[in-house]
Each structure stands twice: as C-alpha cells, then as structure tokens.
Design a protein around this nucleic acid. Sequence first.
DNA 1: TTGTAAGCGTTATCAC
DNA 2: GTGATAACGCTTACAA
Lengths: 353, 353
Amino acid sequence: MPSMREVAAHVGVSQKTVSRVFNNDPQVRPDTRTRVLRGLHELQYTPNTLASDLRNGRAPVIGIAVPEIVDPYFAAIVRAVDEVARRNDMSTVLTSLGDDPEREPLLVQSLLRRSLSGLVVVSVRDEQRYLQLWAGKVPIVFVDRRPSGVAGDSFTDNDAQGGRLATEHLLSHGHRSIAFMGDRLSLPTTAGRLAGYQAALADAGVAYNKTLIGLDASDETAAPRSLDSVLRASEPPTAVFCSNARVTMVLMPLLQRLSIAVVSFGDFPMAAMLSPALTVIDQDPARIGTLAATRIIERIAHPSRRFRRRTVLNVELIERESCRVAEPSAQRSTPRPRSGAQMSAADRCELTS
Amino acid sequence: MPSMREVAAHVGVSQKTVSRVFNNDPQVRPDTRTRVLRGLHELQYTPNTLASDLRNGRAPVIGIAVPEIVDPYFAAIVRAVDEVARRNDMSTVLTSLGDDPEREPLLVQSLLRRSLSGLVVVSVRDEQRYLQLWAGKVPIVFVDRRPSGVAGDSFTDNDAQGGRLATEHLLSHGHRSIAFMGDRLSLPTTAGRLAGYQAALADAGVAYNKTLIGLDASDETAAPRSLDSVLRASEPPTAVFCSNARVTMVLMPLLQRLSIAVVSFGDFPMAAMLSPALTVIDQDPARIGTLAATRIIERIAHPSRRFRRRTVLNVELIERESCRVAEPSAQRSTPRPRSGAQMSAADRCELTS
DNA sequence: TTGTAAGCGTTATCAC
DNA sequence: GTGATAACGCTTACAA
C-alpha cells in the first residue's frame, strides 16, 4: 500500500501537501490540489489508520465486550452500538467473553490497549476493579449489568421490576407455587430478578420456598438437574419464572412436555411462535445499545460535562399464552393493581443515582 | 498511559532496555530486569498496540464483515472466528454490513486500512471487485457466499445439494406443488438453492412453475405480499421451501396458520420447539467460521504454500415434523434413493476448484 | 549487557 | 500556499 510519502514523490510535492489535500485542507492551490488528487488516484493511495490513530492518540473505535455474541439479546446490543458508531464515522471492535470471569480482564484490556475512544461492556464478573486504571482515561459504559468496584456509566434494565411483574402475573393467574430458574446469583441481573420475585411473593402473602429456586440453568448439562430438583420440591411448582432468555431456551424442551406455566425474562426471536406462545418480560437491547454508544459519543464531545451515572430502564410484560397453562383456576384472583406505596425504590424506572 | 520512554526515565535505563524486558528478551542482566519490572509495575505500564502494530506493519487482528450480526447463523460464524483468533492471540474487528451492497466497500475498506492480518467476509454484493486491491496483500476468506470478480479462498455450503435435498424430501411426502421462498436471487446462495430445487423437480418430472417462486421474503414488509402472490398461484402450493433461516423466521407467523408443509434451509435456535417442529437443512456455521479463520492463520504462517481455493461443505436434512403437514397422502411415494448418475457436479460436496 | 539511531505513516508546528 | 522538521510509541539494526 502506497504511503503519502510515495504519492508526494510521485507528484513532486511535499508529504504535507498530500496530507493537506487528502484531508481537504482548503489552504491548497486548486491546481496543486488536482495534481495531488490525480497522484492519489493513480497510486491507489489508501491511508494507514494505525499511523493516524497513533499520531492522534486515539482511534475512532468503540470497543464492545459481551458474554456471548450468539445470544440474540447481546447481538442486538452489539448491532445497536455498531450502528451508532458508524453514524459517527467510527468502527467497532468486538470481543466475546465466553462467560469466563477469569479471562475477562485479559480480553477487555487487549481491546483497551488500542487507544479506543470508548468501551461498552457487559461484564461477566462480580466486580470490575481491573478497569479502574482506565476509567478516568476513556469513557466506559456498563450495560445490562451495573459495575462494581469501579466508576462508570451504566444502562441496565429494571431487573427487580421485571422479576416482580413476572411473578405478580403468575400469581394473578392463581399460581401459588412458582419456581425461579436462573443462572448465577452473583450476577446483578439474576440477583435483581430474584429480589423482584421474592418481593412479589411477599406482597401476595405467599411463603418463599428456597427449594423452588434453581440455578445454573443456562448450562446445557446442569440445567436438567437443576430443573429436576425444583420439580421435586415439597410443593411442586405449577409455574416457572425463567430469569433470562438463555435459561428459557435451554429449559424449553424440558418445560414443554410438562404443561407448566412459564414466564421468561427476555423475549427472543421465535418466542411468540412456540406453543404455547411465550409470555415474556420485554427488554429493549437495541435501545440499551444505542444509549450506551451515544453516551460514549457525548462523553467524547463534552469531556467535562456531567452525566447521569446510572440509568435503569423500564421493562414490560408481554402477555401471550404460556402464563395460562395449568392455571389453578380454583384460586384465580383478579390482577391486583399495585399502589405507589408498594413500589420499592429499586422498582422505579428510568432512574438516576 | 505511561510509555516505555517514561518507564525508562523512571528506572534510569534506555527505552530499549525496557522494551527488552517487556518482551522477555533473555539478553538482560537479572538485576536490571527486576529493576525494570518494578518500574513497569509502579508506573502501571500498558503497551500501546497501535504503535507496535504500526512498527510491525501488521496488526494481530482478523476483520470480519457479516450482513447482520443478529442473525444466529452469522453470529455463530463470528463467534467461531473470534475463538480461533483468540487462540492465536489475535483480536477481532467486526462490521455489520446491513444488507446494503452500496456501503459494503466503504465499510470493509475501513476495516482493511487497519493493517489487518486477515479478513473474513460474507459479502452482500454480487461482485467484490473492490477487494482486488487488497487480495494480494492480505488473506481474504469469503464465507457462505463465494466471491466474484476477485480471487480469494471460500468456504461455502453446498446450496444446490441442500435445495435438492429439501425439495426431494417434500416430493417424497407427496407434494407436487412446492413453493420456493427466498430473498435476493443475485445472491449465490439463493441462486444455488433455487437451482437445487429446480433440479429436484425436473428429476421427479414435476413441471417448474414460476409463479411458485417468491422473492424478497426476508424483508418484513415485502414478505407477506411475496407469500400472498405465491399462494394465489394457478396450482396453490401444499408445501414451501424457505431458502434461508431469516426467510423462515419472517414467514413463520404467516405459514403457521396455513397448515402447509415447510422445509427451511438453515436451522435456528427454537426451530425444533415450534409446532410443528421444523424440518430443516442443517448448516454448520461454527465449522465454517473455524475453517475460515484457520485458513487465515495458515496463510499467514505459510505465505507461499498453496491452498485449496474453494471448499464446499456438505449439508444435511434434519427431519422433524413440518414436512409432514398437509401431506397429500394419496400421491405418497416412497423416497427414491438418488443414484450417482443423478448427482450434478454442483451437488458433490467438500469439493475443490 | 546495554544504548543509539532510524523508521513505521501519519499529523502539528512553524518557518518560508 | 508550501515545505522542513519533529513527534506519536514502539521495534529493528547496529554500535558500544
């Protein structure tokens, strides 16, 4: 690939003049400009981004790290970030963390070393202290899961609200023994959703039964065991709340034969086409991704402006059919509208802190 | 972020010595090494990848461009590439092309300018002449769709074989009026699958009916019209062959009410959970991605070795239930095993050219 | 064993 | 308007 130097030699001007022309600097005589443009064209000049990025001290690149790119939820976030980036003439560097908390620092740091303009991360760790070094130097936005041990913007779903909505919905269909299936409790999402579940049960005066909690259910091999143990609870569940889409997808083949009511935290592509069509808590990954990337753009544009640190996004329940399976209609109660007083702080949405 | 120069000043050695220590050059006195290591640690030295990549003339980065990252097929390819890259201490730069043939050159070139070690691309264009400039300088691997107008390795599915398998399967279930739903015929995948469909019909002595071909069916708004027109054919279809997973997913809500047989080219996450469970042509995106990335690694390691240009991968049919819907059992014929003679060149698999 | 000098391809400064 | 020259942070070649 020819460099500016070569083009300059070819045309018979200085390298700087080529640079000026290439960067549309108006301070160039029209005829010089055309001569240089011709040279640029003749030699098929292609700029070396590495060089200019090094010189500029920053690459117009947004890094993004997600647990698993094949998960449609994370894929949607990635796409949204990529779109915002592109609209701002930036590129995207992706890394899939693979649910391995140990490797995350290595992987994310290898992104950061590239003089990124910003980083969007869905961490798979309990804490992100390893990012402290960078936090002051480059905008970091935590998405889906809020950070711990390091300051940074965050855009997350209202997990407690969603857990509550799902559970209340199942309660309103008469279910009194509702299982909670999740993955790792150390993740703030799982913890928050469980808290919402517990709060809803408490409000309804239904005793919390620990044997109805199944974890590690996003792991294909552990999931069946986890579900099995829950099904063998003293009071077997008539309904299941799956705390994320991956858990739902893994469990679906097992649940379908059981004719048990299901609500999933997280919609996914064919969820409405299943039989029964899945009732879900709907998140908006595209919105989250857009907000996150936009925040990075804003932070770059206004380095000293102050921004809202935490943004918690509302979720809503999409009622389809799976919540009506095996409805213990004898106990059916009408949905009880929640009063403001019953709403915990964590339940408020589009919240700041 | 401190540079080697700063660490050198801090420790009282030359920059080069810091470089040597950092890069584990054995030619350093043990005590110098420990002093430098301490300095590195104290100043929290972090290397600037841009600088070393510029100096080395190449970044340990594999670029990957796909039409749409949210599509689970492409996501699986991306993940596989990312995994191979990581195993070889490389990163991944992703770009989602968004089905816009016009923008592809811009987007892909902006990747290439980064001194990539290699590029994996699922092009959304009919031809990729814009890559000619690069083709000699960096390994480019075309995936899913083979290149046109430029030389490059390719790993593709045997589209003709898959189209044939799907169609023969529906024929064997007694269907004689089989619709073909696809997206853009200019894509080699769609064209190949259509060719397989036509070949199967011809072999079975079933007349090819152009009004049974519906295109642009991956576009949410165009799809219903496309399907409608096909359903209004002189001989309305009793079965549909969807030429890719996206088409299937878009059409599924419409097809489900129709009680019409379906075979999909391309499996996807919940396909087996649908009612009826979807019969599909199974591709192996992870394998394709792994092969593509591995080829790049090999090309880098052995720049002068000769490699197989085109690799065409076998696909297979996974029979579930959707092929048995609305079976015109009166005409049922037993599946006719194909003889070698009936196999066209394009049908052979794991093929080279 | 360690250091100096040059250079990767850009862009910024400041003369001319 | 245009062009030397230095610099970004690193690595290679060579000298001490």
